[in-house]
């Protein structure tokens, strides 16, 4: 028998097998980690045209979320406020600050400030803010600790799995309705009783969000 291949090639099948056993799970794990919203979306922190700080307004000053995001409990969409809302205070407070020049310009010209949207679900997902906000789900559940953010970043993955976690066990995430916008609240609450009394039945089937 002629020697076509050198002796070390005898080990090739073993090497291939070991490589497959090591590489394949690594690749799958990698894809599962890197290609899911937990990695791709969490941490997204775009530069906004105006350096609005939730930490100052929400935490320090204690302004309620709904002062600016006024339609969050009425509609599916949580609106960014019009410049007029900003100017209610900033016509007096820091009224000449260069950081707010875009706001003043927007208010006088009527052109909206080009805020960069951070949280966006795909077109085939129909999410409704009002039903969550009115039924004991706080902003922090999906937006993270906004009150601590100087610059807002995407704190939660907002993948379907993330939504299902709460939809499957609402009692773990629910709080009294009047405390929904109290973002730093950390108290005890009988979620099970609330789910029972309020008849909280978040849908788990597809037509809940996909239509």
């Amino acid at each position: 028998m002629s020697d076509i291949f050198p002796r070390w090639t005898n080990k090739i099948p073993l090497m291939v097998g070991v490589a497959a056993a090591v590489v394949l799970p690594t690749v799958i794990a990698g894809i599962t980690y890197y290609f899911t919203p937990k990695y791709t979306r969490v941490g997204y922190q775009p530069k906004q045209p105006v350096a609005f700080s939730h930490a100052i307004h929400s935490d320090q000053l204690g302004i309620d979320c709904r002062y600016c995001h006024s339609d969050v409990d009425k509609s599916w969409f949580s609106n960014i406020p019009a410049s007029e809302t900003c100017m209610r205070c900033h016509s007096i407070v820091a009224k000449d600050s260069p950081k707010l020049s875009l706001v003043r310009e927007s208010y006088s010209s009527g052109k909206p400030i080009p805020w960069v949207q951070i949280h966006k679900t795909p077109d085939y997902v129909y999410f409704n803010h009002s039903v969550h906000v009115n039924r004991g789900i706080s902003c922090v559940k999906c937006h993270g600790e906004i009150q601590k953010m100087d610059e807002v970043y995407h704190a939660k993955p907002l993948s379907m799995g993330f939504c299902l976690e709460c939809h499957r066990e609402p009692e773990k995430h629910i709080r009294p309705n009047d405390l929904v916008t109290k973002l730093d609240w950390n108290g005890e609450f009988d979620g099970k009783k609330a789910v029972h009394d309020w008849k909280v039945q978040p849908g788990q089937s597809c037509s809940t969000c996909h239509r």
């Binding site: 129909y126 008849k199 039945q201 037509s207």
Partner: peptide, 25 residues
């Protein structure tokens, strides 16, 4: 046909928003 599930959801949402922390859903 989805039995207009979008209208069903809107109706349910409106009712839940009205119900708030009650069971009147």
């Amino acid at each position: 046909c989805t039995l207009c599930v979008q209208r069903v959801q809107q109706g349910k949402i409106a009712q839940k928003v009205k119900a708030g922390n009650s069971g009147d859903v």
